[in-house]
Computed example of a mutant assay.
Amino acid sequence: MTPAPQGNALALDPVPAATGRCSGRRRAKTSDTVTPVNADVSTLAFTVWMHSRQRKLEEEYELTREMGEFYHQVADTMVAVLATADPVACLPATGPDDYRYWPEVFHDEAGGVL
């Protein structure tokens, strides 16, 4: 796999015969780790598409003004759908510095990702 750049970044394995995984580098407080983000490029594309559809529906039906509890339901649903299509993206964390990109991003209400 190609080494990821410094800081938070995404790196793709350029050799299809290898893993093909999309991995992210995250600089944690106690370590600098590379974590799988998606199983392959197709599931990365699916995740990005799903996220864009969710945002478009929010804008179309003006859901952003009254998210509240609905925010968590949407985040949980998106993680569940992603886990079905790409279990690698939603593997359980193995330690305090372990990081799963999409579940963390979808549940970041303060960051306003959804």
Rank of each mutant, 00 (worst) to 15 (best):
A4L: 15
A4F: 14
G7Y: 13
A11L: 07
A17T: 13
A17C: 13
A18F: 09
S23G: 15
S23N: 12
G24M: 14
G24H: 04
R25A: 15
R27A: 13
R27E: 15
A28E: 12
K29Q: 11
K29I: 13
V34H: 12
T35F: 11
N38C: 06
N38A: 05
D40P: 05
V41P: 07
L44V: 05
F46L: 00
V48P: 14
S52I: 10
R53F: 05
R53I: 05
R55N: 14
K56S: 14
L57G: 04
E58G: 09
E59L: 15
T64L: 10
R65G: 14
E66I: 11
M67I: 12
G68K: 14
F70W: 00
Y71D: 05
A75N: 00
A75G: 01
D76R: 04
T77I: 02
A80Q: 01
A83S: 15
T84G: 00
D86K: 00
V88C: 02
V88H: 01
C90Y: 02
L91E: 02
P92Y: 03
G95A: 13
D97V: 09
W102Q: 09
H107K: 04
H107L: 02
A110K: 06
A110E: 08
A110D: 09
G111Q: 11
G112L: 07
V113D: 10
